[in-house]
């Protein structure tokens, strides 16, 4: 939220880090405080606070205008049920409904195990388990490889001071040999 509304200040704060890393800093100093000017030589800028206030003002203005010009009468009534009155909380949409099209579109990328109920089930049961194919096929083997390598190397860590001193000594010897 803060990052979105006051980007210029946060970018300036991050700028010191960027400069300490020896990279070229961002030229934000020329812009007024409310304006984000990423590239001054290009015409691109963004003032989130002003933008937010303007949009909010337009919305409020719309409310006031509609109230001033037309009436404010409101009547409450039952929602239109399209002929099906037995709609209850069990039938409401969940996040599943929003995720389903995405799963459908990107089907090749998902490894999906689904149990669909049939109309004859006494106790209908629906479950879906989704895994990322990329995670299973790429990251898990890579992670396994790194772990196996780490396990192999672990025998170096004996836990005895003398062994570590020996490592240091050998390293120094190797460095010395390289220098000479």
């Amino acid at each position: 939220m803060l990052l979105g509304l006051l980007p210029a200040q946060i970018v300036t704060a991050l700028d010191t880090v960027v400069r300490q890393l020896g990279l070229q800093g961002l030229p934000t100093a020329t812009a007024p405080w409310w304006l984000l000017l990423p590239l001054p030589d290009r015409q691109a800028s963004y003032a989130p606070l002003v933008f937010l206030v303007t949009v909010a003002a337009v919305v409020v203005l719309t409310v006031l205008a509609v109230r001033a010009v037309w009436h404010r009468r409101v009547r409450r009534s039952a929602a239109w049920d399209c002929g099906f009155v037995r709609l209850d909380a069990r039938m409401q949409d969940t996040a599943e409904g929003f995720g389903q099209p995405i799963r459908h579109i990107f089907q090749p990328f998902f490894a999906m195990q689904r149990e669909l109920p049939t109309p004859f089930d006494r106790a209908p049961h629906y479950s879906v388990r989704i895994a990322d194919r990329l995670w299973l096929g790429l990251y898990q083997p890579l992670g396994g490889l790194v772990r196996a390598l780490a396990d192999r190397i672990a025998w170096l860590q004996q836990g005895r001071i003398s062994a570590y001193l020996l490592y240091g000594f050998v390293t120094l010897l190797v460095l010395l040999a390289l220098m000479l």
């Binding site: 009436h71 009468r73 409101v74 009547r75 409450r76 009534s77 239109w80």
Partner: peptide, 12 residues
């Protein structure tokens, strides 16, 4: 539409 009475669902 502006001149009509607004009807809202009870749980809106």
């Amino acid at each position: 539409l502006f001149h009509k009475d607004a009807v809202l669902a009870t749980n809106a």
